[in-house]
């Protein structure tokens, strides 16, 4: 039987969705909030990308949580479009989903970058002042 990442069976919700995404150094980038699927010419359906970001998570959230999430996203200048990580960028799946350095750079969170620039960066000592 053919395998994927060394597994014969991959249950998408159990094994991939909600797992943390990390770069090659183990730095967390977010969670797998959804998966993009595509119909192939042979009629089968394949997974083509991981989706991460609050907008990608919204379809699985209850209505009351959506209000809170959207309000907090607006505070950081969002909400942003889901970030898409091609399935080919996955290097390993265990308790976390590891991806390549190039994919990790492309999948950096815009809201996190804005938060660093606008708030964290203005805190005295935030720019490694002790070094």
């Amino acid at each position: 039987m053919s395998t994927w990442q060394g597994r014969e069976i991959v249950d998408l919700l159990t094994d991939i969705i909600d797992r943390e995404i990390v770069d090659p150094e183990g730095v967390p980038l977010g969670r797998v909030d959804d998966l993009e699927l595509r119909s192939r010419d042979d009629g089968r359906t394949e997974v083509v990308a991981l989706l991460t970001g609050t907008v990608a998570l919204e379809p699985r959230l209850p209505r009351w949580a959506l209000t809170l999430i959207r309000a907090s996203a607006r505070l950081t200048g969002g909400p942003d479009d889901p970030r898409r990580i091609p399935i080919e960028a996955i290097t390993k799946v265990d308790t976390v989903v590891s991806i390549t350095a190039a994919a990790a750079a492309a999948a950096a969170s815009p809201s996190e970058e804005r938060l660093k620039r606008k708030i964290i960066g203005r805190i005295p000592g935030a720019d490694h002042a002790s070094e």
Binding site: W4, V10, D11, R40
Partner: peptide
């Protein structure tokens, strides 16, 4: 409850539903 997938020549292909 879940989507069950498997490998197919390097691709991750959905085989069925749980």
């Amino acid at each position: 409850i879940d989507l069950r997938a498997g490998g197919d020549d390097g691709d991750l292909v959905v085989d069925g539903l749980v």
